[in-house]
């Protein structure tokens, strides 16, 4: 475990804490894409299939349980909680997220880490995570005003994978000296999708003005 990976995991955890904080304190999920959250449930479940078969460390197992548990809880809040579900921007969250699944699955069949069920699903999860943020980014473009917690959530979510990229570079030079095409290319695509959001987020933060994404 290196500092970059730990920072990445903590940033990822913090993003989820911020989102849960927003939902629980404001009892609202306005501006949050349910479709992105549903994709994350699929990402975590297909990635952590080895949760009970391969023990890496207490930290690894605990974090996997937290990520699966919180992502399911967020979908539950947005779909079933009597107050929160009323605040879901249903008619703006229109990205056809189910269209993302077949290409990622086909890509996982074509380029798996290994041709076994768990590795194909692991690769699928890596590819899907790269594009899972698209419904959320589209929703942000449509949101007239993005509240601070939502903006912070998306920023932290983008920052975590950027930190993972630094971790991969660090591990390449200090440990493995192996190129890992699947997570690296997916991670670069994933982080690149946040590029314009990062630009407008940092600009709004520097100018102390409300975050707005051009339509």
């Amino acid at each position: 475990m290196n500092i970059f990976r730990l920072a990445g995991d903590m940033t990822h955890l913090l993003s989820i804490v911020v989102l849960l904080l927003k939902i629980r304190t404001t009892k609202s999920c306005a501006g949050i894409s349910l479709k992105t959250q549903e994709l994350y449930v699929i990402v975590f479940i297909t990635r952590y299939l080895d949760l009970f078969t391969r023990y890496v460390s207490f930290y690894n197992t605990a974090m996997k349980l937290v990520f699966i548990g919180t992502s399911v809880a967020i979908v539950w809040y947005m779909r079933l909680h009597k107050v929160v579900k009323q605040t879901y921007s249903r008619d703006e969250d229109t990205f056809k997220h189910y269209l993302l699944i077949p290409p990622c699955f086909i890509l996982a069949l074509l380029i798996p880490l290994e041709f076994t069920v768990t590795e194909i699903l692991w690769s699928f999860s890596i590819y899907l995570e790269a594009v899972a943020i698209l419904p959320q980014l589209l929703l942000l473009q449509r949101s007239s005003n993005i509240d601070n917690l939502t903006g912070s959530y998306v920023f932290l979510l983008g920052a975590y994978r950027a930190l993972y990229i630094v971790n991969w570079v660090y591990r390449f030079f200090t440990e493995t000296h192996k190129i890992r095409w699947i997570p690296w290319i997916s991670g670069l695509v994933q982080t690149a999708l946040y590029a314009d959001f990062f630009y407008y987020y940092i600009k709004s933060w520097k100018n102390h003005e409300k975050l707005r994404l051009p339509a």
């Binding site: 990976r5 995991d9 990822h12 080895d50 391969r54 890496v56 460390s57 690894n60 974090m63 996997k64 990520f67 880490l113 290994e114 590795e119 692991w122 993972y164 971790n167 591990r171 440990e175 493995t176 192996k178 890992r180 699947i182 997570p183």
Partner: peptide, 10 residues
Amino acid sequence: AAKESSHDEL
């Protein structure tokens, strides 16, 4: 080794 290392991350 590659497989192991890629699966110790989240």
